[in-house]
Amino acid sequence: MNLMNDEDQAIYKIENLKKSYRKKEVLKNINLEIKRGEIITVIGKNGAGKSTLLKTMMGLISYDSGSIKFNNKEISSYGHSLYKDLGVILEGQNNLYSYISAMDNLYYYGGLLGLKKSEIKEKGESLLKELDLHEHRNKKAGDLSTGMKQKLGISIALLGTPKVLFLDEPTLGLDLISTKELIKKLKGLSKNHNISIILTSHEVSTVDEVSDRIAYLNNGEIEFCAHIDEFKRKFAKSKKVISVKGLLRNEREFISLKQSYLNEVTKIHIDEKSNSNKILADLIKYKYEILDFSLTQNELENAIINLSKGENE
């Protein structure tokens, strides 16, 4: 009896995946499972192998050894039918025919999915409405703004009934409000429609808001893959900052502290080894005007920086 419910099963299961380009090992023994309905972000420096990993998972490029299973079946056994279940935006705005309208782009790509014209019209218009693009549906794709092109690309990716969405830098070029809307939309797709979303992004706030898990790829290897909170707990160090009015005089208690000065405010950055209470007491003793004392904890950006610093050291 299978006690595992459908949602617990991995939609993607990658084992010992290796890929080389002309003797250069780009992916080294990758092991990764992606659950149904989860949002996972692959992060890493440029050239870490993120695009190769994603393209290999999509079947766009072949791999040398290991296995990639989609729905418990090797992806190579699907042929083109694999793409009925995948929605892909590789480079956002570059997925469109610029000389035809937004709606005609939807008709074309929907046609390639084998959808009826009426189905495309109904679903396409509803997607455009959701992404606040409906009034621009008759504009040529080339005349749309970067953000609008990105949204149109996402509408196209959602035209079929994908089980997995691959998004490469989905919020690139989007304004703040559009980014928030998109994040909400992605979360909705994951939670309400059980769509797994695999994305890459360099925008830390997006990664922080949208991801359930993070896979950190370095030099072709997944160095760390965990829930975002665990990732932050493990790698982000808490940081304390005291802001005081004016410049610090050269009191010996403060000489060794890391500080920055801007707009008549000195910010004292306190590391984990220093005693913030003592510094505060000293500042009061020397009659400095304390403007602010802030504590930042578990920031994703901080975690990513610390993790990459760790590699370099």
Binding site: M58, L60, H80, S81, L82, Y83, K84, L86, V88, L90, E91, N94, N95, L96, Y97, S98, Y109, L112, L113, G114, I156
Partner: peptide
């Protein structure tokens, strides 16, 4: 050059048919 080719390769219909 525009990147639409990769999209066509990721559709449930073979590029040869297209």
């Amino acid at each position: 050059q525009t990147g639409t080719l990769q999209q066509l390769l990721l559709k449930p219909v073979s590029f040869l048919k297209i």
